[in-house]
Amino acid sequence: MSFKKIWERIVDSKYFSFGVTIVLFGILYAIGILNFKGFSKSQVFFNLFIDNAALIIATVGITFVLLIGGIDISIGSVVALTCMVSAQLMENTKLDAGIVTILVLIMGLAFGFIQGFLITKFNMQPFIVTLAGQFFARGLTCVISTDTINITNETYNAIASARIYLLPKGFISAGVLIAILTLIISTIVLRYTKFGRNIYALGGNEQSALLMGLPTGKTKIAAYTVCGFCSSLAGVVYSLIMLSGYPLHAVGMEMDAISSSVIGGTLLSGGVAFLPGTLFGVLIQGVIQTFITFNGRLSAWWTRIVIASLLCLFIVMQSLITKNRKRINSNN
């Protein structure tokens, strides 16, 4: 077998873009270790997870929606709303932290369900419906309070500052635990349940899915519901870091989630995604931020510029993979 053929095989493999994402993460991390003192500490690695726990959950949520070829741009606002409602309820009603958390999770679930219902039943553009959702959630957050509400609830603060040691000198937070659990459960759901496979089928070709007798409508609504739930779960994790409700929390988080998902190998046209890949999409963003922190002189906005180039790179790569596959086909 010639080198070219082997290369074609590799590119054609299902896990090629997952591999590229991991290799890229590895390279970036290696550059960090070589350039900065202290980058090799295990806690630097764990901090990537701690800082981005909420984003990981949001990325899992958006990936469900991207898989069916849809989009949800209400995530950041729902995160802010969740923080605000949690803060308001805990501070001003003295409700138990556990009950508050369950309430806000139900709220996110309902929010996602309503958006999915509107999109599916009235055949509306997901962009417009979730744009309305974005305005609504952000507006509601500001109506509750335009000022910061700090969360002083003791249980909540205790959970927030809990350190779970994985190594003698490396710990993670409760939020990371939640994020990793969400990721694992979602990966299994997408791979091993009918609902998960229906999501892939729907994204591959909606018409075909319908003709094969799959419940396309229900699946679509469920995908948006999952995304809404993940948004509020991300909100809970975010509030554990911020310990406050504030109208400008998590502005634009949906865009970070979308870009992480795409860098992790998700196709915006639907039908293709691998959740562990999207985790590395988040971590790559995290590494770049860590660079800038370690460097100390660069503007934080450089993160965006690097991410922009990476996005371009990945989109071009994906289109080349698709082309390559077509070429192999026509050669067969």
Partner: peptide, 28 residues
């Protein structure tokens, strides 16, 4: 049908069985 009504992103095997997947312990 004339235009093939299957999902291009799924595996060949899955295209044959989706909607009627054999399961073990509720998992595909």
């Amino acid at each position: 049908y004339q235009e093939i009504n299957l999902c291009p992103n799924l595996s060949v095997a899955e295209n044959i069985f989706i909607g009627r997947e054999p399961r073990k312990m509720r998992m595909i």
